[in-house]
Amino acid sequence: MFKKLIEESTGKSPWLFHINAGSCNGCDIELVSVLTPRYDAERLGFKLSGTPRHADIVVVTGPVTQQSLNRVLRTIEQVPEPRCIVTMGSCPQSGNVFRGSYAIAGPLSKYVHVDVDVAGCTPKPEAVIDGLVKATEILREKRRAMK
C-alpha cells in the first residue's frame, strides 16, 4: 500500500530543475511562462526547485556549448535517483542552427540518455506541458522499477 502511494505521488509532485546550456533564452522564457497564471503548471504539481538535489525532472535548454558541457553533466549527476531528463527546443536535440560550430559539444543525447524531447524552436507552453506530463509518466515507471 505504502509503495503504491509513493509511486502515485511521485507522478503527482514532480519538481523541475532548469539548466541553461547556452540557450538563446527563447526556451527559458517559455519554460518559466509555463508557471504563469495562464498555463499554470502548478496545477499538476510542477514546481521550480533551487538545487538539483530537490529535483525530479531536469529541463535542459540550449545547444550544450563546450563551456557548459561538463557543468551540465555534473549537475545532472547530482540529481537523486528516480529522475527524468527533458530537452526543450531543438537546440539540445541536434544543435539546431549552431550544428557543426566548433563551440558546440553536440546534441545532449550523445552524453546522457534523454527521456523526452520537446521539439520546436521555442515550443509552445502547451507543448512543454505535454512533454512534462509525459516525463511524469516515465518517472512513475522508473519509481515502480526501483527497489
Partner: peptide, 22 residues
C-alpha cells in the same frame, strides 16, 4: 492561478519519502 490541489503537500511528502537520500 488555479494552484495545486489541497493535498499537494501530502503528495510532495510521500514523493520525497520515495526518493534516494544522497
Amino acid at each position: 492561478r488555479v494552484g495545486p490541489p489541497i493535498l499537494q503537500p501530502f503528495y510532495d511528502f510521500f514523493k520525497l519519502c520515495g526518493k534516494e537520500t544522497i
